[in-house]
Design a protein around this nucleic acid. Sequence first.
DNA 1: CATGAATGAGTATTCATTCAT
DNA 2: CATGAATGAATACTCATTCAT
Lengths: 191, 191, 191, 191
Amino acid sequence: MTPARAPRADAVRNRKKILAAAGEQITAHGPEVGMDEIAAAAGVAVGTLYRHFPTKTDLVAAVVAAYVARVADGAESALGRVEAGARAVDELTAFLGRVVEASVTDRAVKAAAQTLGAEQGDRADEDRAGAAVAALIRAGQADGDIHPDVTVSDIYLLFSTAPTDQPPTARARWLDLVAPGLTTGARQAGN
Amino acid sequence: MTPARAPRADAVRNRKKILAAAGEQITAHGPEVGMDEIAAAAGVAVGTLYRHFPTKTDLVAAVVAAYVARVADGAESALGRVEAGARAVDELTAFLGRVVEASVTDRAVKAAAQTLGAEQGDRADEDRAGAAVAALIRAGQADGDIHPDVTVSDIYLLFSTAPTDQPPTARARWLDLVAPGLTTGARQAGN
Amino acid sequence: MTPARAPRADAVRNRKKILAAAGEQITAHGPEVGMDEIAAAAGVAVGTLYRHFPTKTDLVAAVVAAYVARVADGAESALGRVEAGARAVDELTAFLGRVVEASVTDRAVKAAAQTLGAEQGDRADEDRAGAAVAALIRAGQADGDIHPDVTVSDIYLLFSTAPTDQPPTARARWLDLVAPGLTTGARQAGN
Amino acid sequence: MTPARAPRADAVRNRKKILAAAGEQITAHGPEVGMDEIAAAAGVAVGTLYRHFPTKTDLVAAVVAAYVARVADGAESALGRVEAGARAVDELTAFLGRVVEASVTDRAVKAAAQTLGAEQGDRADEDRAGAAVAALIRAGQADGDIHPDVTVSDIYLLFSTAPTDQPPTARARWLDLVAPGLTTGARQAGN
DNA sequence: CATGAATGAGTATTCATTCAT
DNA sequence: CATGAATGAATACTCATTCAT
């Protein structure tokens, strides 16, 4: 219960620079980038890295957490659009597509997290995302467009198996193959 | 042409032991298991590893190749059953399911191969698998059960995104979600 | 231009300890001494070796460079004495003798450099040595003591063939055998 | 005192092939060539190498011994020519030159021997060479051409310091620089 | 007697982490 | 609080030597 003295401005700046650099470096060179390289990319010394994140695993966890937060934001805006009248199935699949695209950027992050056994950073963001997706699904089911047994964890399952390291055409095709499993209508030729 | 003097019995035994151990170790601890650990698990000295596979990359490639060979076998037996009267869609999805199950055993192998940029060992096995899968698809399309635009690379795309590291129930659910993308009928509730 | 922040005191100390230890170890056990052994002899961990010299080759090159710098110093003092009135031939042969003696200490260094294909570190020191030796030769030739066709590369040739790994008497005898090739006078019995 | 049963013909052939191959390989790639490579070059298996030479050191010693034998032959022919009327100084320097040239071929052999601490193979050949050289020196001294204090070990000293790894011009120049130390006459300009 | 597969200690090098400056 | 030098365990790979076939 330390009063948590307000962190110094430059420390906050450093934390952000480090998170950004770590994201870029891991994205670009995979989870095995050295801490030194991340530090250099962030423009700080290794020691500073370790002041903010006691362990490489912690750093990666933080990067993943930031990614989860962005996903949550995306889910909530989709939900917002549905509440404003958009069709839920469309928003859900579009959301799925956007996540897959974003994953490309954050490519190896997922792998890094697994490799290092990173712990969940911020439960809160995950819950936020989960709530929004659940609402989207319910809306789609109310419309009769989304299959009644689809759940939030189905969406997560698809997230976790998205072909993030494949070319755009493959990713688009994957969406086509996977969408019919969520919806009620029969598959149409050519899409 | 090649004199190919019969390989010594013990050398063959060792090669098999090494491949098996490498598969297990990589499965259990990921691609970064040390060569020493693999050697110990195989009951040989490191030098023996290197006599059989000049490089860690080569070893992983061989493990992957063995896996591909098993997949090819599976595809061909499925095709055999179809030729003997079985329904093609069923055999195709069953085959997909079996590959996913098998993948669990070979879990990280795929990742290992990517990490190390392993080359594929035996084109032949890949071709064998491809031919058999293509025949299955054609048969299912002739029956009117498989969607006309489904191709062999669709099947490979699904392979490569199978949730090999998830619990059995998740893997089963994944099959349910993915199957409708391949077939013509509308999705039925509860499957 | 280079900010060149003053190197930390302990880092400088370590660099020196490492160079000294490397010289000794290579001298004592040849170029194949392990980096670990050099590190131990220097009282540091291997990692520290690699922080200062990214490669064994680089380390050896640095040792050789230090040796070249000492040779250059020796040549320049000899030249200084000549300018102060000493006889050039005598200084040149004495210099040759001193280099050979010093080589004993740095015994295998030369071999190590060759074995590893080490690049030369500081051209400057080599040039310094070359200039001083050239001046010595010219002075001796002006005196009529040194044979007119002797060049700097002759001196280097003799350096490179000095019997550095032989007992002192052999080294002295070698000097006696080799000196007449540089001078004008006929050889005298007994020296 | 085992009767030393006459060695089988093929064993003798193998011994020769191995010695030749070892000489070539060490000459070409230095003392650190692997035993496997030598074996391959000789067209036998490693086991056969070890049957003939229990240790790499022993093998190198044998290669050196063969070299010494050739040197002895050269010395003896030179002596023969002197006895047939040739001038001793000329034969001695020519012999020195030929040894240096030959050394080029056997380049790293000397280094290999040192590196491995190889023992003398055949005292007899060394003695043969020593006797012939001694006779040459005595003859030259009787002619008044060779300096009276020159000994056999002087010649060996020069052998051991010959610039075997330098280009032909450097080797020739080295001979010019070194010859005056052996002879009585004053050095002449230009040779 | 030849073969070549197996052994295993040894080598250079990397990298997460600590700690003196 | 930042810096970057030091640490040292770990890793892939080599090679002289042994020994089953």
